[in-house]
Simulated assay, not measured.
Amino acid sequence: MAENLGLNINWNEEERRIAIFRPEFQNSGGGVFLWIGKNIVGIDEYDEIKIDTPPIIYKDRTMVPIRDISEIFEKDVRWDENSRTVYIKDK
């Protein structure tokens, strides 16, 4: 998901942390940080917000709350109930 939005991802096994960055900010500490099983998102290493659903690992895949991540990166998110499809685009 993140890669399709033009974002980069790093995984820290020791902390069980996912880091998602815009490519131009990857080495500056700016980005979004999520921890498996925790209901918080770190933003740019300074701010934190609470989220309803924590990231999980399911069948060796990392699942993140797509709406929260997309909206943090200023994307428009729309759910189509009929087709059960999420649409994400730039605002």
Rank of each mutant, 00 (worst) to 15 (best):
G37E: 06
D60G: 01
E3M: 15
E15Y: 02
K50C: 01
E15G: 07
I57A: 05
K75A: 12
K50A: 03
G30N: 15
D47N: 11
R67G: 05
P65K: 01
E48N: 10
I18R: 05
P55A: 03
V41M: 02
P65A: 02
D68G: 07
N4G: 12
L7P: 04
I43V: 06
E71M: 07
R17E: 09
E45L: 12
P23Y: 10
Y46V: 08
I40N: 12
L5S: 10
Y46Q: 14
G30I: 05
E81H: 11
V64S: 05
G42H: 01
K75T: 06
G30R: 15
E24C: 00
W35Q: 08
G30M: 14
G37V: 02
E24H: 14
N4M: 14
P65S: 03
G42S: 06
S28R: 15
G30Y: 13
K91F: 13
Y46W: 06
G6Y: 13
S83Y: 13
I69Q: 00
G6H: 09
D60P: 07
I49F: 00
D76C: 13
R22I: 00
R84M: 12
D80Y: 09
L5Y: 00
E45Q: 06
I43G: 02
D76N: 15
I56G: 04
I20F: 11
L5Q: 01
N82R: 15
T85C: 05
D90C: 01
Q26I: 11
N27G: 08
G6L: 04
P54K: 02
W79G: 08
A2S: 15
D80V: 06
P65L: 01
P55R: 01
I57L: 07
I72P: 00
V41H: 03
I51V: 07
V77L: 13
R84C: 11
N82W: 11
N12A: 09
T62D: 00
W11A: 08
P54R: 00
T53N: 10
E15I: 09
E15V: 03
M63I: 09
I88N: 09
P65I: 02
E24R: 14
D52F: 08
E71K: 07
V32A: 08
G31N: 04
K91N: 09
M63G: 06
I66N: 03
I40F: 08
F33M: 13
I69P: 01
T53S: 07
R67Y: 02
